[in-house]
Every structure is written in structure tokens, then in C-alpha cells.
């Protein structure tokens, strides 16, 4: 199982698409590691600097329809090789969401109000987020105290996270 805790990166926008997460010009790479410098290079978000802001982060918190567009699994891979194994959003595009779980990573959906609360309370602060896999909750802290927020995850998705992805599971079962 991958690691699901660390510093949070807040991306305050809806509809961040896969071309922004990893532009097509880098899809000629045939190793995941080669994608590392290019994560979020084309993200259209005022004040965002992909080189500086991504470094040292482990969790992304964002708004609605994250990962829309292309089917490229290069998007989760670019996150993974940068040490980001969790994205928390109001909603995801279907293919991106499935790709995350297929790679044994978390795409956690929380209600709009909860996401708004996370932005209000934590964005701009150095925030640590841990996913409690057994407890189906995320634990946040920024300075003093911690906050726990439960989330729901389907049995299949949870199994993929615990077993490390879909290829191993499918090979064993089908």
C-alpha cells in the first residue's frame, strides 16, 4: 500500500483538466519517472508556480470535476512520481478517478460544503493531511489541534488501494 499523508496543496478551481495536469507534449515519455518535472505545468491558476508549489506536497485539495478530459493515466502517474497519492475534491471525472484507484491511489470525494470548509480553514496555511485507510477518514492539522472528516469509499476502490492496484487483483481473480 502507498503512503497517504503529508503536506497539502490547495488548487482553488473547478474543472482542472488532464492537459493541465500533464500536457500532451510529454506523453512521448515511456517511463513514469520522466513525467516528474512537468506536473501541473500548464495549470491556469493565478499565482501558481508548478515547480515551487508542488515540491514537498503529498495531497491535493481541489474543487469540482478534477481530471476532466483525456484518459491519460500519465496524470495520476505524474502525481505519483511527485509523491502525491491522494486527491480530495468535490467531484472527479470518471476516467481520472478510476485511474487513481487502479494505481492504488486515493481520489476522495467530499461534499461541496466540506470542500469549502477545507479551503476556508486551511488554504494558505501549512496543512498536514493523513488518510486513515481503515477508519475511512482524513485527519487534518495546521498548527494546533486536528480535525477528522469521514469519507465514503466503495468496496472495490478500497480493495484496489489496499492490494496496490487493479492489475494484480484482476490477474488473481479473472
Amino acid at each position: 500500500m502507498k503512503s497517504f499523508n503529508g503536506k497539502a496543496l490547495f488548487l482553488d478551481r473547478n474543472d482542472i483538466n488532464t492537459d493541465e495536469i500533464i500536457p500532451a507534449r510529454y506523453l512521448t515519455e515511456i517511463t513514469k519517472e520522466a513525467l516528474k518535472p512537468y506536473l501541473l505545468e500548464d495549470l491556469s491558476l493565478p499565482g501558481f508556480d508548478s515547480r515551487e508549489d508542488v515540491a514537498g506536497k503529498a495531497v491535493i485539495v481541489t474543487r469540482e470535476n478534477f481530471g476532466c478530459g483525456s484518459s491519460r493515466e500519465h496524470a495520476p502517474w505524474a502525481l505519483e512520481v511527485n509523491g502525491i497519492n491522494v486527491v480530495i475534491a468535490e467531484s472527479f471525472a470518471r476516467i481520472f478517478r478510476q485511474n487513481m484507484y487502479n494505481c492504488g491511489m486515493f481520489a476522495i470525494e467530499l461534499p461541496k460544503e466540506t470542500i469549502a470548509h477545507l479551503f476556508d480553514k486551511y488554504a494558505g496555511k501549512e496543512t498536514q493531511i493523513t488518510v486513515d485507510v481503515d477508519g475511512n477518514k482524513i485527519i487534518l492539522s495546521a498548527g494546533e489541534g486536528t480535525e477528522e472528516i469521514p469519507f465514503s469509499v466503495g468496496g472495490f476502490d478500497k480493495t484496489l488501494v489496499v492490494e496496490g492496484g487493479w492489475v494484480g487483483y484482476a490477474d488473481k481473480n479473472y
Partner: peptide, 18 residues
């Protein structure tokens, strides 16, 4: 349906998709 590389990989190997 469009899928990612892992779903594609399982499709190639096992002929199934979830």
C-alpha cells in the same frame, strides 16, 4: 468507454474491465 493504461492493461491480459 475510454479508459486509462491500467484498465487497458487488464483488458489486454484478461479481456475484462470493471
Amino acid at each position: 468507454a475510454g479508459v486509462g493504461t491500467t484498465d487497458l492493461e487488464v483488458g489486454i491480459l484478461k479481456g475484462v474491465c470493471a
